[in-house]
Amino acid sequence: MFAKIFDVEDLTRRDSAFDAVAKFEDERVGIGLKTWIHTRDLTYQKVAEFNKVAPIEFSPLIEEKEYDELIYKISELRNERIKLDKRQYNTNHEIYHNITRDNNQMNVVETNYDLIQLDSLKLLSQTSKTYVFSDGLNTYKYYASKSVLLKEFEASPDKVLEKIPIIQFDDPFELLKMIELPVQAQEEVQDTIYLPLYSDVQMKVEEKSGFNAWNAAPKNKGSNILRPEYEAYIPIPKWIHHTFPKFFGFDALDRRERNIASSFTLHLPDDRKFKAIVTQDSGKSLQTNPQKILGKWILHDVLGLQPRELLTMEHLMKLGVDSLKLTKLDNTNFKIELADTYAFENWKIEIEDKIRESGSRMPTLRPHLLEEE
């Protein structure tokens, strides 16, 4: 509802630190949305989940009773995700926009979207399942059993920006009966694929190809000239072209079609647009011209790496991302955005299940297993 009324970009279906991004002339604002029933002025609300990293990063610290290290690691990873999305969506400001529902009114409260101050952390209390800590600006609570981080929000009278009268229905189903929706044409389902930031064969980020192509040997044999900073390309596993043969509007496995195909436009999360092509043997590479345009955006602008700094699986795990989501708008326009850890692998499992259900011939979706055999 917020996104529709205020005409902002809705991020609630994405694994993002923000729920929406608003654009005001040259300003881009990352917005966190929270709603709760106003039973008291102070309340804890969930701000982050750590389901994937908690067993690896947090559980050992809890077992060793390293609680100061635990709250530091939680705070560090929370900050990294916020900074990642600030870079990805190129935001200038960030806020929490909160609505609390009281008797026959709703209260509008806005607060700062702060990074956690790592040098001011203090553990306030802990049990076997909860850890409460402060950074001097805000108070947080980590639930180990659910791997979630909550932040304390205040909605006392002096924090309320506006009070809006509302009518509360005792039976919401009676209200729904009053709503008549026009019959709408079925929305067209957009084609989507996922591309790994790592090698689908080696299950790691290669040091001299893909996003580390800048680290490969010089193009001219015997030359000492280094490849350009941020030279990179997105690896496309061959099985994706077999399974989605016309995703890019042409048969990427056919060299002739690939060579005569025109470039297409990549739409970035921060509204920038780049021209790109599918190239190399078997269409294994998605790249811009020059290649460093793509590399600088992903490696520097989004992932925060410095020139000639290797991308590693450890860095991706720390940020909670390891793949890219590519959504086809039409044959010449594609939306590209980061996808969270295991998104590519989970998508691959879904594709395998669909192929089995259809009874079609199963392509080789797991080349790294064949190599091991």
Rank of each mutant, 00 (worst) to 15 (best):
P290Q: 04
A343R: 04
A17K: 05
L137D: 07
A217E: 14
L365V: 08
A339V: 08
P228I: 00
F247Y: 12
E49V: 06
T332P: 00
H242K: 15
E162T: 11
T100W: 02
Q202T: 10
E206I: 05
A216M: 00
Q306K: 11
F169L: 13
L123D: 01
S156V: 05
D85C: 11
P157Q: 06
K284I: 09
T43S: 13
D158M: 06
R78Q: 11
L319M: 09
A276V: 02
D19I: 03
M1S: 14
E257Q: 15
K273G: 01
S125I: 05
R101C: 13
I225W: 02
G283D: 09
H93P: 04
E94F: 02
A48I: 06
K292W: 07
L70R: 07
D301C: 03
I236Y: 02
N331I: 04
S209E: 11
Q184T: 15
R13T: 13
D10M: 02
D171G: 09
K163N: 08
E337L: 03
T43L: 06
N138V: 14
K284G: 11
L365M: 10
K65G: 04
R14Q: 12
E352I: 08
R14G: 02
L149W: 02
S145K: 13
S282H: 10
L123N: 01
I62W: 05
Q186Y: 09
L11F: 06
A185I: 12
E309P: 00
L61N: 03
Q280L: 12
I5W: 12
A48P: 05
K65Y: 07
K163C: 08
